[in-house]
Simulated assay, not measured.
Amino acid sequence: MSETYELKAEARETVGKGSARELRRNGKVPAVIYGDKQTPLAIALPYKELYYKIHGGAFKTTIATIDVGGKKIQVLPKDYQLDPVRDFPVHVDFLRVSKNTVVTVNIPVHFLNEEKSPGIKRGGVLNIVRHDIEAHVPANKIPDFIEVDLTGKEIGDSIHVSAVTLPEGVEPTITDRDFTIATIAAPAVLLSEDEEAAEADDTAKDEAEDEKGEE
């Protein structure tokens, strides 16, 4: 789990588009804290700190503490909007969390030991079906990533979620099937050779049938 961090915020007395625009002109970002059966709390955060947190990675899987006028609230970022042109944050939604809170997050997948995969050594290509896995996880146990070991994987092999050791408390949201995370695909050259072999085989069969017909 990524190291938690703290942000200082101000409570917002007014909300709406006009208020939000004024905040942004003053170098702040409007945000809302909701959940835990409490009234949503409108806040304003410093733009610069928030920008670096969002673009620093693992923003939506890291618990944060927001200090609002001396009151500290543990939260998990659930969503944020970026300006489509300049890529800076324009709004953030935070979920209140506690040690008993279970959240739904997308956990990145990291692939290990490509050099120990015979299939990849032979030119096979790692075809990533899922770059992350959506899962239910206790808020205080969100892993930074899920590891998939490629040791021994051959061309044509598929890696399903059942073959992966998931961190404690991680339960995939998809439960009705053993979904695929990645496959080791044949290299384009090998595919081309197989196609040529199949075409040659078809040609040989056609010629044999022609000769038989002539007889």
Results as ranks from 00 to 15, higher is better:
V102N: 08
P30E: 05
N26M: 06
P84A: 07
I181R: 02
H91D: 11
T203W: 12
A20Q: 06
V105A: 05
K17R: 14
F111S: 02
E114R: 10
N113K: 07
L23S: 08
T14D: 10
E6N: 04
T183A: 03
E171R: 12
D36M: 07
K121N: 12
E193R: 13
F111M: 03
V105Y: 05
V75I: 15
I146P: 10
T151G: 13
E3R: 14
A198F: 12
A44C: 02
I142C: 10
K153Y: 14
G56K: 07
N100L: 09
K153R: 15
P77Q: 01
V129L: 08
E207C: 01
A42F: 00
G18M: 04
E147N: 13
F111R: 03
V15Y: 01
E171F: 02
L190H: 01
I174Y: 01
K17V: 09
I155Q: 07
I63G: 03
I174V: 15
E22S: 13
H131T: 09
V92T: 10
G18K: 12
Y80Q: 05
R12E: 10
H110W: 00
D144P: 00
K205V: 10
G16E: 09
T183I: 01
K116Y: 12
A182V: 02
S162G: 01
P46V: 08
Q81N: 06
P84K: 09
T14E: 13
R122E: 15
V109G: 09
Y34L: 04
L76V: 08
V29T: 12
A139T: 11
E3N: 15
F145S: 14
Q74V: 02
I120W: 06
S19R: 09
A204R: 15
P143T: 08
V85D: 03
P77H: 05
Q74K: 14
L45V: 05
A31C: 06
T62H: 04
E168T: 10
P187D: 01
E215A: 13
A208V: 07
D144L: 09
K116A: 11
K78V: 11
E134Q: 15
S162F: 02
V161W: 02
A197E: 12
Q81E: 11
E215Y: 12
L190S: 06
D67F: 05
D176M: 04
V109K: 07
F59R: 11
V75A: 08
E10T: 13
R21L: 13
K99P: 01
D132P: 00
I184F: 01
E134A: 11
S19Q: 10
G124T: 01
Q81S: 08
Y52D: 04
E3A: 15
I120Q: 03
L126P: 06
D202R: 15
E195Y: 04
K72Y: 05
E10H: 12
K60V: 11
D79A: 14
G119E: 03
Q74I: 01
E6Q: 14
G18R: 13
P84H: 10
E154G: 07
S162V: 02
T101I: 03
